[in-house]
């Protein structure tokens, strides 16, 4: 793997499972998970929007939980399993949430989309959203400058419907 270290500055050795593959890293401790993914790992699907926890573009799954990768030091995750948008599905085998986003045109520029999809996958698994209002509230950590919110909520609702995990059907707002 590419090494982006500067000489004479502190480094740490860690191991992470990235999209199912266990890998070892030697890193400066100030490398965020986001910079590790987008830099040396060349997994540029995960986006950097604000770099300060304010937009959700960098959302990935760490041991199944959605977090903002821009505010996580990679070294603090030693041993963890990371799933990024690249690990959810492939062009020939899309994840149901990816499929639903395509079907519902749940994006315009697409910059927020990987974060939205990772977040939505976690939302379904968490099981706290039971209505459209709850989907909107529990997706509020993902901003979309293009304003594709209606279609994003539609896509998520459809996935939940097909998985029969949404007992309350509400009228769309």
């Amino acid at each position: 793997m590419a090494d982006a270290r500067s000489p004479d500055l502190p480094v740490c050795n860690i191991s992470l499972s990235i999209n199912g593959e266990r890998q070892k890293f030697t890193l400066h401790p100030w490398t965020t998970l986001l910079d590790l993914l987008r830099g040396p790992l060349e997994l540029s699907g995960t986006k950097k929007g604000c770099d300060h926890g304010q937009c959700g573009a960098c959302t990935v799954l760490v041991d199944g939980e959605r977090i903002n990768s821009c505010l996580k030091l990679a070294v603090s995750l030693d041993g963890a399993g990371i799933i990024t948008i690249e690990g959810l599905g492939s062009p020939n085998g899309l994840h149901p949430m990816q499929e639903a986003f395509v079907e519902h045109d749940a994006y315009q520029c697409g910059y927020c989309t990987p974060g939205q999809i990772c977040s939505a996958v976690a939302l379904v698994k968490e099981g706290h959203a039971r209505s459209r209002a709850e989907i909107r509230e529990l997706m509020s950590g993902n901003l979309c400058r293009c304003g594709a919110y209606t279609n994003i909520a539609d896509a998520i609702e459809e996935v939940m419907d097909t998985q029969r995990i949404r007992p309350v059907k509400e009228a769309a707002e």
């Binding site: 926890g53 959700g56 959302t59 939980e65 959605r66 977090i67 903002n68 505010l71 996580k72 977040s119 976690a122 939302l123 968490e126 529990l138 509020s140 950590g141 993902n142």
Partner: peptide, 9 residues
């Protein structure tokens, strides 16, 4: 407060 992602961390 915050967002689901932030509350997880």
């Amino acid at each position: 407060g915050a967002s689901p992602q932030l509350r997880n961390a």
